[in-house]
Nucleic acid binder design. Structure first.
Lengths: 121, 121
DNA sequence: CGGAATCCAAACGGATACTG
DNA sequence: CAGTATCCGTTTGGATTCCG
């Protein structure tokens, strides 16, 4: 298969650095199913801390992948949703997701083998 | 589009944590074009340090994506190549690469806008 | 040639407390 | 409700030196 040439790798790395962190994929995948409020996301992702959810959303918003809509009521209401740019990312990420699901067992097996050989070496 | 369900996100995250680091994609893309020796990779990726190339290759090898072949001559010769598992990853990563190339300008523009608005807010 | 070992600074990420 | 601020341990990655 044709593969992107070297210069593009900077862009790939840039994108992967954003979505490759601990939480971005989870957030994007939640938002792919529809807009969510802050605490809705927090419940769906469960183990994420408030601080990391805030930081992850800010990063995604900064990159134009997530839209943040504040309704200045009391108490305040903030809705997050994917931008068109963010939506267009879900396809490629989902493909990588399918690959991950298809191969996670092989990867985990490889890790066990590798670690086992480390002991006996 | 259909999106992977929640449980699979652990696998996606696991994969992205591996290839989402600073160097893995560069290494995999270099190896996608054929086997490489250690210092060949180092030259191709240029800005990578010796330590990080070693660590990245070890990580990829541990996960079964890269094969390491030592020829115990003097001086030693070590060839790296993608395993079938590693090769199967280049497709999905390349798709993400195309997305990145297509949208990197939009992302950078969004960042500039966001950062500019930070100042005036 | 292809590493490993050590040292160090910066970034990441969790816990907790506080706020408009 | 949706954050911000602070503290602190962990991880990442670069520079340098040494080794078989």
């Amino acid at each position: 298969m044709e593969v992107p040439d070297q210069p593009s790798c900077a862009a790939v790395n840039d994108v992967l650095s954003r979505i490759g962190d601990k939480w971005s994929v989870r957030v994007v995948m939640s938002l792919a199913q529809g807009p969510r409020r802050f605490n809705e996301l927090r419940r769906e992702i469960a183990s994420i801390s408030q601080r990391m959810l805030t930081r992850t959303l800010r990063g995604l918003e900064r990159d134009g992948l997530v839209h943040r809509e504040v309704t200045p009521t009391v108490p305040p209401r903030v809705d997050y949703s994917l931008t068109p740019l963010g939506s267009s990312l879900t396809g490629p990420v989902a493909r990588l997701g399918y690959w991950a699901m298809d191969n996670i067992l092989a990867i985990e097996a490889a890790r066990r083998d590798f670690d086992a050989n480390c002991d006996e070496d």
